[in-house]
Amino acid sequence: MKQNDEFFVPYIEGSLGSKTKKTIKRFGIVAILIVIFGALVFGFTQKPFKNSSFELTSTTKIVGTFHENPYPMLRVQLADNTYKNIVLLGFGKSSANPYLEVLLTKEKGLNNKILSIEGNLIYYNGKTLLQITDEEKVALVSSDGIAPTKSETIEMTLEGEIIDPKCYFGVMKPGFGKIHRSCAVRCISGGIPPVLATTDDNNISKYYLLTDLNGNAINDAVLPYIGKPSEIKGIVHKMDDWHVLMINPNDIKVTGSKSSIY
Rank of each mutant, 00 (worst) to 15 (best):
N202V: 11
Y262V: 05
S53Q: 07
V185Q: 15
L121Q: 12
T20I: 14
E159Y: 00
D251N: 14
T65N: 02
G28K: 15
E101H: 01
K19N: 15
E135H: 07
V171W: 01
S151R: 02
E155G: 08
K113W: 02
A147S: 15
G109N: 11
D80S: 15
G92M: 03
I162R: 01
P224W: 02
G92R: 11
I154F: 12
I154D: 12
K228A: 08
S94Q: 05
I24P: 06
I132G: 12
A197P: 02
L130A: 08
M156K: 11
T157I: 11
F54M: 03
N112A: 06
L210N: 07
M73E: 12
F44P: 05
L213C: 14
Y262T: 08
S53G: 02
F7R: 12
E13N: 04
K258A: 07
Y71V: 08
V35Y: 09
T105L: 13
V236C: 13
P70N: 06
Q3W: 11
G126F: 03
D5P: 05
F176W: 01
N214Q: 13
Y71A: 10
T133V: 04
G119W: 06
E55R: 01
Q77K: 14
T149L: 13
Y168C: 00
I24L: 15
G256Y: 01
